[in-house]
Design a protein around this nucleic acid. Structure first.
Lengths: 238, 238
DNA sequence: GAGTGGTCTAGACCACGAC
DNA sequence: TCGTGGTCTAGACCACTCA
């Protein structure tokens, strides 16, 4: 662990998750934490700020840091968290089928979305996600070949994110998502077990790298009864 | 403006929104900002951290702070942003009808959700939101009388949040939301213009005050074709 | 009044990118 | 090598809560 404040953050997360400090109780004061971790107060405050941002604590002036509910995970929303990460966290049986893996034709609208030049090739990967033997999610990802020169069915079968982060060394930084509800397309009907549902939840994500370049565009289509999205939001201070 | 870093944040936001620094350009370095605002580097960094959290910039080590797209607003998701705030931001004609305003019976399940004692009274407010003359959203809010002693149809007609923050002086701090898609209930059919839609988007929100006490529970039910949720997420550093 | 968190300072050293 | 942002320190003063 390189950073002191990230080490302290992780240490505190573990204690909270293990109920060492139960919900509604107070963490030790910032001063006593500086003693415990042999560091300065600003460093402790950085770790506490991360706890607060991630929904573990709420700081109350004059009192201390109150432990609040541990944040839940959202259901498979492809994009910034990988499908594999989520589904392994949730410990449910899953299966991925690679449906398409190809270059899209030039002059495709996706080229514009990805800010790609006219002669840059774009990968298209479409995958069906099965959970508990039901085809629930249809993910379609687009990558510029400039960032991802090679893709194989094996990589797509496993986890594209793992390949991108570990093999290619690219660092995913942030994503913008838009959630809407639409009517299913022909492809939704043939690819998924829709069971009479007449709507589909669509999550469109743009994923950016550390240097703020747009790197991936994804459309993730979910059967509505299995869709669940959990959000934690702080009210803007302004 | 009390705080230096919030003043600097706001000043920088204005310059970004007015295209003083266009998208993809670099902000001045942290050092030169300390000179311009006559302050220390950590204070500048606090303001830049807020810009980054709110999706205005992306910091790149060794290069500087890159301006990225200005964040968009999500469509009416009652909870932490008030309906009135959003709808006035979007500049569309709207109307609110107060359908119910009453105390709920004791031993109601909502009492448990709100962590209320057995003899504490709970307000229930249900409101229909019309946008462009269509009944699109059904909001049902629950408040503990301990926090909100009085409610009137006039207050509910206007904005409960404005009343809570300005009159009662309570400070809303954060919210946890859960988005799912469900089948419409009888009440959805009679209250809203559903136009044959057989699904409804449900947002359940728990809203907390500054001292981390749970203060409000809301169920917001949206006609699916008019629902849109925009999210900006950073990948966790761990 | 003692203890808490909120803000702010003026330094320091490091890791990284561009030249 | 130089300028950038990333981390860290050891103080200071203030605003707030609680006994």
């Amino acid at each position: 662990m390189n950073n002191k404040y990230q080490f302290i953050y992780q240490s505190l997360v573990e204690k909270i998750r293990s109920n060492f400090w139960p919900v509604s109780s107070l963490l030790p004061s910032e001063h006593s934490l500086t003693v415990e971790y042999d560091t300065s107060r600003e460093t402790i405050r950085k770790a506490l700020e991360m706890l607060s941002q991630n929904g573990y604590i709420q700081k109350v002036r004059g009192k201390g840091s109150v432990v609040i509910d541990i944040p839940k995970y959202s259901f498979p929303v492809s994009g910034i968290t990988s499908f594999k990460e989520l589904v392994e966290e949730l410990k449910v049986p899953y299966h991925t089928t690679v449906q398409e893996l190809e270059y899209i034709p030039f002059t495709h609208e996706i080229q514009q979305i990805l800010n790609a030049g006219k002669k840059e090739k774009i990968w298209k990967v479409s995958r069906v996600r099965e959970i508990n033997q039901e085809k629930i999610i249809l993910d379609t990802d687009f990558f510029n070949e400039a960032f991802v020169p090679m893709l194989s069915r094996d990589i797509c079968q496993d986890s594209v994110y793992e390949y991108i982060e570990k093999e290619l060394g690219l660092v995913i930084s942030f994503a913008k998502k838009e959630i809407t509800v639409e009517e299913p397309t022909e492809k939704d009907y043939t690819s998924l077990d829709l069971e009479g549902f007449s709507n589909i939840v669509v999550i469109k994500s743009k994923v950016y790298l550390e240097d703020a370049t747009l790197f991936q565009y994804t459309e993730s289509r979910h059967r509505p009864d299995k869709f669940r999205f959990v959000d934690f939001a702080r009210r803007a201070k302004l």
